[in-house]
Design a protein around this nucleic acid. Structure first.
Lengths: 242, 242
DNA sequence: CAGTGGTCTAGACCACACC
DNA sequence: GTGTGGTCTAGACCACTGT
C-alpha cells in the first residue's frame, strides 16, 4: 500500500506540513512538486486532492494550495476521524481503556419487512439477532443490536459473537467490512437504557443505526447502537460541490 | 458545471441506474463505457469513482463495477445527504415547510481562548455573537449560536443577521461556504432548551458544533446548534481505506 | 489466459486570480 | 500576461478474479 507513488507523496507532504516546513502555509505549485519529486503532475494532483478531502489543505484555483491553519493546532477541535473508522472497537477513542462485551441475547429470528429490504433478503431468509452490551473498563457505554443473515455467516456461535465479529471476519475469512451507511440521531433513554447504561431518566442516548457492507458490496449487518450520550461524539469534515 | 464531461457521464449513469437499465446490477466495464460515450477511460474512472464515493456502486478489482442494491430501493434507509449539504436552510429536509428565524441576541464580544484558536484570531480581534432561534412553519427546532470575526464581516447588522448569512455572503460578496468541520453529539436539554424548543424535561437535544470555512480556507464561523431531538438526523456513508 | 479495475505518465488546453 | 489549479486525453503497465 505504502509503496504506491501517490501514497508516498501524500505521506511525505503530510509529514512536512506537520513539521512546519511551510511556515507561510502555502505549498509549492503542482508543477514544481511534480518536478521536485520526479512524478507526474497527475500524481501530485491525486495526493493533493486527498489532502484537500481530509481538510488538511485548501486548493484555490488561480492562486495555489494552502494549509488549513486549524490542522496545525494539534490539540484543537480538528482531531477528527477523516470519517475513516469502522468497527466499534476502532470507532471510539478508548484512551487505553479495555473494551468488553457482554452478550445479552443471541438467537435466530425471521426478519421484519424493513430489515429484509435493507439486507436484501429473500422471503425465507433468516437472520441472527445479536444483542450485546459494550463496555470500557467494565463501564457500559452502548447497547448494540445486530442483525446478520444466516446465509452469510452460517457458522456463527455464542463464542464468536462474544468477541469482535469484524475481527473474526478479517482473520478467519479474509473479508473486510469497509463501508457503512449510518443515521445518527438522539432519543430520550428508555427504562432499559437507563438500567443498562446507568443513565438518569433525563439523560438521553445517542443512536447510530444502519448497514455495514462487505468489500464486494454485500450488505452484511444491520446494526442499531444506543450509546450513553457522553460517549457519542461523531466528527465529520464535509465539503460541498454539486 | 454540468457541461463538464465527467459530470455529464456521472449524471447519465445515475439516471440509467435509477431507471433500472442494468437489471443484473453490473455496469459495463470501463473500456466499453469509454468507447460507448467517446470519452477517455480516465474520465470514466472519474465518474465511477464519484458514484463509488456516494455508495451508489461498488468497484471490485478483477471483476467489475456493481450497483448497490440498497440504492435502488428508493424509499429505503439509503436516501442520504452524500454529506453534501451545508447551511441550515439546506441541511434539513424542510418538506415544503417555511423556514423562519427569530433573533435572540446580537452583540460584539471578546472571544474565549478556545474560540480564538478555532477561528484563528489574533489577540485583539473581536467577534459577533449571534444567537438565533430557527423555525419551520413557526415551529422552533433549533437554537443556534454563531460567532463570526468582525474583521471578516464588518458590515454585519441586525437586518442581515435576521436572514440567511450564507445567502448574504453568496449574493452580496460572491463568497461561498463550502467546507465545515462538525462534531455531533447529544445532551440532556437545559431549561432554556425546554422553553425555546418546547421540550419535555426528559427530552434531549442533538448538538452539532464546529467551524465553517470560506472557499479560500478562512475559518468563517464557529457555530453551536442545539436541535430538538426529533429534527436531528444525520446520514453518513463512510468508506475506510488506509 | 482473458477480463477488469488500479496506477502512472506526458502533455494539451481551459478558467480563474493577481499584478 | 503570468501563474496556478481544473479538465481531458491516449496509452502503458500492474494486480487481481475467474474460467
Amino acid at each position: 500500500m505504502a509503496d504506491l507513488v501517490y501514497r508516498q507523496l501524500l505521506s511525505t507532504l503530510k509529514k512536512q506540513i506537520v513539521a512546519g516546513d511551510y511556515p507561510n502555509l502555502k505549498l509549492p505549485d503542482e508543477r514544481s512538486l511534480s518536478e521536485q519529486y520526479q512524478v507526474s503532475r497527475s500524481t501530485v494532483k491525486r495526493a493533493l486532492s486527498i489532502l484537500a478531502d481530509q481538510g488538511i489543505v485548501f486548493k484555490k484555483r488561480g492562486s495555489g494550495t494552502f494549509i488549513n491553519p486549524l490542522y496545525l493546532k494539534n490539540d484543537s477541535v480538528f482531531h477528527y476521524n477523516n470519517g475513516s473508522n469502522l468497527g466499534v472497537t476502532d470507532s471510539f477513542q478508548m484512551n487505553g481503556r479495555k473494551p468488553g462485551i457482554s452478550l445479552l441475547n443471541f438467537e435466530v429470528v425471521r426478519p421484519q419487512a424493513e430489515l429484509k429490504r435493507d439486507l436484501f433478503l429473500k422471503n425465507d431468509d433468516f437472520v441472527y439477532e445479536i444483542k450485546r452490551l459494550r463496555l470500557f473498563d467494565d463501564e457500559p457505554f452502548m447497547i448494540e443490536s445486530g442483525y446478520i443473515p444466516i446465509k452469510i455467516m452460517p457458522e456463527l456461535s455464542r463464542q464468536i459473537v462474544s468477541g469482535s465479529i469484524f475481527n473474526y471476519l478479517q482473520k478467519e475469512k479474509n473479508q473486510a467490512v469497509t463501508k457503512s451507511y449510518l443515521t445518527i440521531s438522539a432519543e430520550p433513554s428508555t427504562k432499559e437504557d437507563q438500567q443498562q447504561l446507568k443513565l438518569q431518566p433525563n439523560e438521553p442516548v445517542g443512536v447510530m443505526a444502519g448497514v455495514f457492507f462487505l468489500d464486494d458490496g454485500t450488505p452484511f449487518e444491520y446494526s442499531r447502537m444506543r450509546l450513553h450520550y457522553k460517549y457519542m461524539k461523531y466528527n465529520t469534515f464535509v465539503t460541498i460541490d454539486d
